[in-house]
Amino acid sequence: MSAFTPENSPIYQHEDIQEILHIAIARQTDPGEFSRKELVDIAAELGISEDCLQSAEREWHEQQFIQQKYRTFNLYRQQLLQNKAGKYAIINGFLIVIDFLGGHTVSWSLYPLLFSGLWVSLDAWKVFLLKGEAYEQAFLRWERKRQFKRSIGVFWQNLRQVVQE
């Protein structure tokens, strides 16, 4: 394979240009932030219209908003798992202590430890499995629940304002 030089450069596809520019921006020695004006100037230099840039910017903001929702959902699920693991540890520790104090051995308390450990492991698997239909359904259920709580909160707030007037 011959070495790359600008003289023998190939014709680039649209996706290739995106990747090359992405790498170049990431490797830039001054990894500062860009203002909106600089973004508009860069787009103009690349021949991107203002309408196209605004549309892309809107889409990017929507994607960021959705990604933030997914991050919040994942954090919520991890906190639930931590709570379950804490309860698991406390309850099973208590059962092991009772079993040990009753006969100076650990015998029957291993069964609840194993069965509840299986349930916690399955919950952990579900929490860290971030793809698939079950994950999307869980996310949608969580999002509907949040929206419902928000709408109930708004309703009560409006009702209080009406009653106070």
Rank of each mutant, 00 (worst) to 15 (best):
Tyr70Arg: 09
Trp60Thr: 05
Gly32Glu: 09
Ser49Asn: 06
Asp30Cys: 05
Gln63Phe: 09
Asn92Tyr: 06
Ile17His: 01
Ala85Asp: 01
Ile25Arg: 14
Ala85Ile: 11
Ile17Leu: 11
Leu118Ser: 04
Phe65Val: 04
Gln161Ile: 10
Pro31Ser: 07
Val163Tyr: 14
Glu45Lys: 10
Phe100Pro: 01
Asn74Ser: 06
Val163Gln: 06
Leu130Gly: 11
His22Gln: 13
His22Glu: 08
Leu95Phe: 14
Ala56Gln: 07
Pro112Ser: 05
Leu39Trp: 02
Asn83Ser: 12
Glu165Arg: 15
Arg58Tyr: 09
Ser109Ile: 03
Gln28Ser: 11
Asn74Asp: 15
Lys87Ala: 11
Phe148Gly: 04
Ile42Asn: 06
Ile98His: 00
Glu143Asn: 03
Gln63Val: 03
Tyr111Gly: 03
Phe155Arg: 02
Thr105Gln: 13
Leu53Glu: 03
Ser121Ile: 08
Gln18Cys: 11
Leu39Glu: 09
Ile152Asp: 02
Val106Gln: 01
Ile20Asn: 01
Ala124Gly: 08
Gln147Ile: 10
Val163Leu: 15
Phe155Ser: 05
Ile98Ser: 00
Leu159Arg: 10
Ser9Lys: 13
Trp108Ser: 02
Trp119His: 07
Gln64Tyr: 03
Ile48Ser: 06
Thr5Trp: 06
Pro6Ile: 10
Glu33Met: 11
Gly117Gln: 01
Gly132Tyr: 02
Ser121Glu: 01
Asp123Leu: 12
Leu75Arg: 12
Tyr135Ser: 01
Phe4Glu: 02
Lys149Val: 04
Trp156Tyr: 09
Ile66Ser: 10
Ala124Cys: 06
Lys87Gly: 05
Arg36Glu: 08
Gln28Asn: 13
His61Cys: 07
Tyr70Trp: 12
Asp16Asn: 10
Phe100Met: 04
Leu39Met: 14
Gln137Glu: 08
Pro31Phe: 05
Ile48Glu: 04
Arg144His: 13
Ala89Ser: 07
Ile20Val: 08
Tyr135Met: 00
Gly103Ile: 03
Glu57Val: 09
Glu15Ala: 13
Val40Met: 10
Gln78Val: 10
Ser109Trp: 05
Asn158Met: 11
Glu165Gln: 15
Pro6Leu: 14
Arg141Ser: 08
Phe4Thr: 02
Met1Cys: 03
Asp41Val: 03
Arg141Pro: 00
Glu7His: 08
Arg160Thr: 10
Lys131Trp: 14
Val127Gly: 02
Leu159Thr: 11
Leu122Lys: 15
Ala56Leu: 13
Arg36Thr: 09
Arg27Lys: 14
Ile23Thr: 12
Arg160Gln: 08
Val120Phe: 01
Trp119Leu: 11
Gln137Gly: 00
Ser109Met: 03
Glu38Val: 05
Phe65Pro: 00
Asn8His: 09
Pro6Glu: 07
Ile98Ala: 05
His22Pro: 00
Gln82Tyr: 10
Trp119Arg: 11
Ala56Lys: 10
Tyr111Ile: 15
Arg144Lys: 15
Tyr88Asn: 01
Gly153Arg: 07
Tyr135Cys: 00
Ile91Trp: 12
Ser2Trp: 07
Arg71Leu: 14
Asp16Ile: 05
Leu46Lys: 01
Gln28Ala: 06
Val40Glu: 15
Arg58Gln: 11
Lys87Asn: 12
Cys52Lys: 13
Ser121Pro: 00
Leu80His: 03
Ile23His: 06
